[in-house]
């Protein structure tokens, strides 16, 4: 779809969903804060941090390998909150970045996390490292650092591609407890096979809300849920409609209805 006029129904749906999300964010910011369910993978974060502190080994973070986009910012938001918990425990963080701009943002995020926890003395500039922008060179560098520094906990939150298994399996081999989350669905099986806890699908975007309990994030989750209800309703109506159309092909009495329904279903095709 190049332009809204290609399919007004879809464009209208996008506008409606956007308005619902923004409205719920505004409502939450004004005090009506909703509650969201527990996400098991995120409950394990404190366990992972505690383990790393007991073993006297650092925690490793990788915010994905793409530039400063939606997925990376969501990942940095999660990692910033985790870093604050790590700072409270008095432990060290190593963050590896594949993009120079993300490195700058990550430095600010981690430094602020340590400052907010009152442990700015524990933060060092070398803790946030830019390795390279080349995908597999970054994977090789990260694997090397994991083998040398031997982190006890590994947090992988961001956009990952083919190199994801290199991080996850290396972490597994050094005995780190690993928590991963990515919006890239094709990488989820690899994380599931090699990591201890995996955040799947939109739990990744809900993770910031769950950890921080920030009204903006929580309102956004509620808005997304309403949007999902709308989409599910459309899918159900489409299933019923398509079934009636198919039924109409075999039963002449339903022919007229099925033709009209087919036209309605065709309208929604982008």
């Amino acid at each position: 779809m190049l332009h809204a006029s290609d399919n007004y129904w879809v464009s209208g749906l996008v506008v409606l969903i956007s308005l619902i999300i923004v409205l719920n964010v505004v409502i939450a910011q004004q005090g009506r804060v909703p509650n969201i369910r527990r996400i098991p993978g995120l409950n394990a974060i404190d366990e992972a941090i505690g383990r790393a502190t007991e073993m006297g080994r650092p925690a490793l973070m990788i915010p994905g390998i793409t530039g400063l986009g939606v997925g990376t910012l969501a990942g940095l938001s999660i990692l910033g909150n985790i870093a604050q918990s790590i700072a409270r425990f008095g432990n060290k963080v190593i963050l590896l970045s594949c993009d120079p701009i993300v490195t700058g943002v990550a430095e600010e995020t981690i430094r602020d996390a340590y400052t907010n926890a009152g442990r700015q003395d524990l933060y060092h500039d070398e803790d946030v490292r830019y390795l390279t922008s080349e995908q597999f060179a970054f994977a090789a560098g990260a694997a090397g650092i994991m083998n040398r520094e031997k982190p006890a906990a590994s947090f992988l939150f961001g956009d990952f591609f083919a190199e994801s298994l290199i991080f996850a399996e290396t972490g597994q081999q050094i005995g780190a407890i690993q928590i991963a989350g990515t919006p890239q669905t094709e990488q989820i099986p690899f994380f599931l096979a090699a990591c201890d806890y995996v955040i799947i699908g939109e739990e990744y975007y809900a993770a910031s809300a769950y950890i921080t309990r920030n009204p903006t994030y929580l309102g956004s989750i509620v808005g997304q849920d309403f949007a999902k209800l709308i989409l599910i309703s459309i899918v159900l109506l489409g299933v019923i409609g398509a079934s009636i159309v198919q039924f109409g092909h075999y039963h002449a009495g339903f022919g007229h209805i099925s033709v009209e329904l087919q036209k309605l279903l065709d309208l929604l095709k982008a």
Partner: peptide, 21 residues
């Protein structure tokens, strides 16, 4: 995921995003 990305993109665009940075 798409709804999550849309929500995050809206928060960034309208500067509703919160967090340390």
């Amino acid at each position: 995921i798409t709804l999550g990305e849309l929500a995050m993109a809206l928060r960034l665009w309208l500067s509703l995003e919160r967090g340390s940075y």
